[in-house]
Computed example of a mutant assay.
Amino acid sequence: MEQRRKILPGERVCQICGKDEHTTEIVPAVLVRPAVAKIIKEKYPEWSSEWFICMDDLNHYRNEYVRTLLELERGELSSIEQEVVDSLRTHELLASHVTEEFESHLTFGQRLSDRIASFGGSWKFIMIFAGVLCVWMFINTVILIKKPFDPYPFILLNLVLSCLAAIQAPIIMMSQNRQEAKDRLRATHDYKINLKAELEIRQLHQKIDHVLSHQWERLVEIQEIQLDLIEEIRKYRSKELVPIKPESSAR
């Protein structure tokens, strides 16, 4: 445990890092939540309600409390939850454009398969494909009726369609797998954002409680000063209202 300098009576100094109220905001120990104070006391057994702590150290132990809370609720922290806790400590933003980041790492073949799958599932492809079938059958049944290159029942056409389906099916499946990976990445990102929002709301409640407690302490001090002033005014007026006894006449 690091050595801390001796604190003079009445001096508002963080007993953990040694910073004074002129360099950072100092919080009385009595305003620290009991759960957070318990974590501080584990590291500093001599922690008492007469101590002071700076906001930097207080936020650090608040993050430790959040980590402990998550471990109690979910067991060991996952890498995602650890990343969220670290972002709280460093005030780092987690929001990002997941789709752009995912697509920036795609290869040329993956982009090509996505475009083929997108085209194969469109009305444009259906109309073009239906037109090709009609033209194929029209040529072999009307134009080249005497010597067609693919007579009825269009065995060559069936072979072409089978080959097209055999090639198109795995391409569509590859595209669907990438879409599922993108959806999982987006779901993970949403989970991190929601978890961080929940933890920040908890910390916001703690900060609001701290502000209210601090304001209440100030109001109590102001009220005590007002009571002292009222008491002084009352004493002063009581002295003014004391009747002056007339001097006894000379005999």
Rank of each mutant, 00 (worst) to 15 (best):
L31N: 08
Q82G: 09
K38L: 12
F52S: 04
V142L: 11
A197W: 07
E231I: 03
V27H: 07
K124Q: 08
L164Q: 05
Q176T: 01
C163W: 05
G18K: 02
C17N: 09
A117N: 04
L93A: 15
T188L: 11
P153Y: 07
I39N: 04
D183R: 12
L195M: 10
Q176H: 12
H22D: 12
V13Q: 03
F102Y: 00
H214E: 09
L133R: 00
K196E: 02
Y65W: 15
A117V: 04
M1S: 13
L94W: 07
N59A: 06
C54D: 10
V30T: 14
E25Y: 12
D57S: 04
F154W: 14
I208T: 12
S78P: 01
V13R: 11
A197I: 08
E92S: 14
I225K: 05
A187G: 04
I53F: 01
E46T: 13
E73R: 13
M127A: 15
E221S: 13
E71M: 04
Y61S: 00
K207G: 05
I225F: 02
P153V: 02
F154T: 08
L164F: 15
D56W: 02
L185R: 15
I172H: 04
Y152T: 07
R33C: 06
I233C: 03
A37M: 02
S249C: 04
L77S: 01
W216A: 14
T107M: 06
S118N: 11
L8C: 10
I7F: 05
I139D: 07
G75P: 10
G121K: 04
H22G: 10
Q82F: 09
R111I: 10
P246K: 05
V220L: 07
V142P: 08
R4Q: 14
G109M: 12
A166W: 06
S113Q: 06
S118E: 07
I233K: 11
F154A: 01
P243G: 06
H205M: 06
D20S: 05
V132G: 00
L159Q: 10
G109V: 08
S48T: 09
Y65R: 06
E101F: 07
L133S: 10
S104H: 07
H205T: 09
P34F: 07
Q82Y: 00
E64I: 03
M55Q: 14
E11Q: 13
A181F: 00
N63A: 08
A166L: 12
L69S: 13
S175Q: 10
D114N: 12
P170A: 03
E64P: 06
S79G: 10
Q82E: 15
L72E: 15
E76I: 14
Q168M: 15
P34D: 11
K124Y: 15
D150K: 05
V36R: 00
W123H: 04
A187Y: 01
D209N: 14
V220E: 06
T90A: 04
L212D: 08
E198I: 09
G120A: 12
R5Y: 03
L72R: 12
L70H: 00
S96L: 08
C54A: 07
